[in-house]
Design a protein around this nucleic acid. Structure first.
Lengths: 136, 136
DNA sequence: TCCGGAAATTAGACAAAGTCCAGATTGGTG
DNA sequence: CACCAATCTGGACTTTGTCTAATTTCCGGA
């Protein structure tokens, strides 16, 4: 199944998001690439031809997608947040030199021995980030 | 052993850092508390009495400590970086509501099944962050 | 003690990411 | 067509962090 703009509308609806023009473009940018993009990058992609979508809308929309569980937030770089269209269980590999971010399938990764949570608390997520760099 | 200002000078020297007035104060802020502090918080602590240390120096010094391996950087909050005086192997527990950050000893935590690294790459570090929140 | 230079510190201008708001646009419904 | 709610917009603003040129501090040697 390909990520056409038409399919985006259905995807948005199925997540209880009103599919507007701008939202479809932003979803398309993320899902057709299947890459980790920052808000800046999304804005650049969406506005390649001529400026069509404002900064405020890009930020609002990404936040909305996040709340609705359409994308995930990845915090690896102190200067900007990345948005990840892959919401399945997976971890991240981060090249510190280049800023390149890629996925690690969580299927065969096991994490054991974590201490019990404080009472009344629930886990919202576990982020595992492997930071790598080119050997000196 | 307590983290007196006098001991700080030795700690800095042992890490090949020229122990100046300001550096001792900043190290003292971090180590006497054994807490995760942001640059802002460090600045506030150091300048409680009267303004003594400039913003530029706080940032320069924290970066220097980082390079010299005296502290570690923790990236969990998209809006600010935390500095961690504990450089031993450990992970982090992050309360998303409150922003409270605490340590998880790495001693009994096991991570297995990570894929091999791309050739020519070395691991710089593995960050494991457990995000929790109060049950609804 | 005094001098000179290197290291460190400083204030403040600047940059980048993200937030906020009040007004304009849009789209669906009767 | 008129109306209302939802959405979008430009632009001002905030916050975190960087940069730079000028000053201060520190130390060794004459």
């Amino acid at each position: 199944m390909h990520y056409t703009r038409d399919n985006m509308a259905g995807l948005l609806r199925s997540h209880d998001i009103n599919p507007t023009h701008q939202r479809i473009e932003i979803a398309h940018a993320l899902f057709s690439r299947q890459e980790h993009l920052s808000a800046d990058q999304v804005m650049a992609i969406v506005n390649t031809r001529h400026s069509e979508t404002s900064k405020a809308t890009v930020y609002n929309t990404l936040k909305l997608f996040l709340e609705k569980g359409l994308v995930r937030e990845v915090i690896v770089d102190p200067s900007k947040v990345f948005f990840d269209p892959n919401t399945g269980p997976h971890h991240h590999l981060y090249e510190v030199d280049t800023g390149k971010l890629s996925d690690i399938d969580a299927a065969h990764v096991q994490i054991s021995g974590l201490p019990p949570l404080p009472p009344g608390m629930v886990t919202e997520g576990i982020d595992l980030i492997v930071r790598i760099r080119r050997k000196a």
